[in-house]
Design a protein around this nucleic acid. Structure first.
Lengths: 225, 225
DNA sequence: ACCTGAACACCGTTCAAGT
DNA sequence: ACCTGAACACCGTTCAAGT
């Protein structure tokens, strides 16, 4: 017993993260256990708890790495001719990344912290960073619409692409192949952008045809429930 | 030991499903265990295995009930003035259902079967039934576009709404409130439908402006990777 | 200072034995 | 025929004890 110090704390951290990632990539989150990680790296289970708070904390850091990697891929994308082409490329890159390691990516959505402790700030920031990539790509299309609309559209697209990848990697959309999923992603991006381009740009929002339509429908909604 | 027959097999099945549902509703999938279910209903753990194959099978049947309930809600919806209003109502109903019991609904997406055994047919059919509700609502808008386009759009909308609800219930979209999620869902449905309405209806597809556009873009894509 | 490993309180699943 | 409960092979997490 006692110390071994064959690895620095940083090395140990790396070893643990890599082992955990490997286990999840092969067998999903349910295949992961602290004891299994310990076995793989040749340390006792207790050692993990010197470095990570608990298993949730460890998993959260594996997720963080994934978000980081994806963001790098999105950032490294070549220039495109049009804003629409760029958005489509972003969506496809996301899709390709998730299909390259489906179980790992699913981690982001099947792992939940106990409601007692909220998602840490650094994690939220990584997601915000990805959303910012989309907002940047979307801005030229949105023209002078207000910032709230831009944020909203970025989130709609992100969530939509996520929904497609999530349902297709877990085979709950009868989609199965990556090609089929890509068709859906392309359809979403093209059609949504086409819809956006039809919307009135900024202007007195309250009096635009579309705002009036929405207000009317909302009244409908509350009166009939 | 030995039999007790204070409950018929059907009653026992009900007891188990209800206990499991209750546990998941409170503590999520990770809170569920066969032993805990057994404790709650006052039977031994082994009893569950007379009725369900294993814990995955039990969970799958809880999911089946959820899909069934949602479908009933969607089917019972009142008539709407327009196809768009109906689609929006469908999306909101979905959202409301999932936010009413978020942990339970998340079950559908955090629970994965081992890849060895695929999703059973009855489960796939429940999902197809829900997609059919959307296709019916969407058909008037799509006009005489081909059936494949209808199926595709229904799936895009379903996945999109799912993505929004999934990310908002797990707080990974910085959305938090149901109202915020509803804004996103409304935006998705309205904008996507607006986009659809701009597309050429059927006609000689290969020569329509849009088809030409897409073909061009696809060529672009493959040449630049 | 760092790591161990036993200990505690749990799991899913099986199956001989009981009624 | 139905149900039990002990048994097996696992868990996450803690913490006194060792080096």
């Amino acid at each position: 017993m006692g110390r071994r110090s064959t690895h620095t704390p940083e090395e140990l951290r790396e070893l643990i993260l890599r082992a955990a990632r490997d286990i999840i990539e092969r067998g999903g989150l349910s295949g992961l256990s602290a004891r299994e990680v310990a076995r793989r790296i040749g340390y006792s289970p207790g050692t993990l708890y010197n470095i990570f708070e608990n298993l949730d904390d460890l998993v959260l850091h594996v997720e963080g790495r994934l978000l980081e990697e994806l963001e790098q891929e999105l950032t490294a994308l070549p220039r495109e001719e049009s804003a629409e082409a760029l958005l489509r490329r972003l969506a496809r890159t996301y899709l390709a990344y998730t299909h390259r390691q489906p179980k790992l990516w699913n981690l982001l959505f099947e792992h939940h912290l106990p409601p007692s402790r909220p998602v840490p700030a650094w994690y939220q920031q990584r997601i915000e960073a990805l959303l910012t990539r989309i907002e940047e790509a979307l801005a030229p299309i949105m023209g002078d619409r207000d910032a709230a609309a831009l944020k909203r559209s970025a989130r709609v697209l992100w969530a939509g692409v996520h929904g497609i990848t999530s349902l297709s990697t877990t085979d709950k959309l009868s989609t199965i192949t990556t090609e089929a999923a890509q068709l859906l992603v392309d359809d979403l991006v093209s059609t949504y952008i086409l819809g956006l381009s039809q919307r009135p740009a900024a202007a007195p929002l309250a009096t635009s045809p579309h705002a009036a339509l929405e207000a009317g429908e909302l009244r409908d909604e509350s009166s009939s429930t």
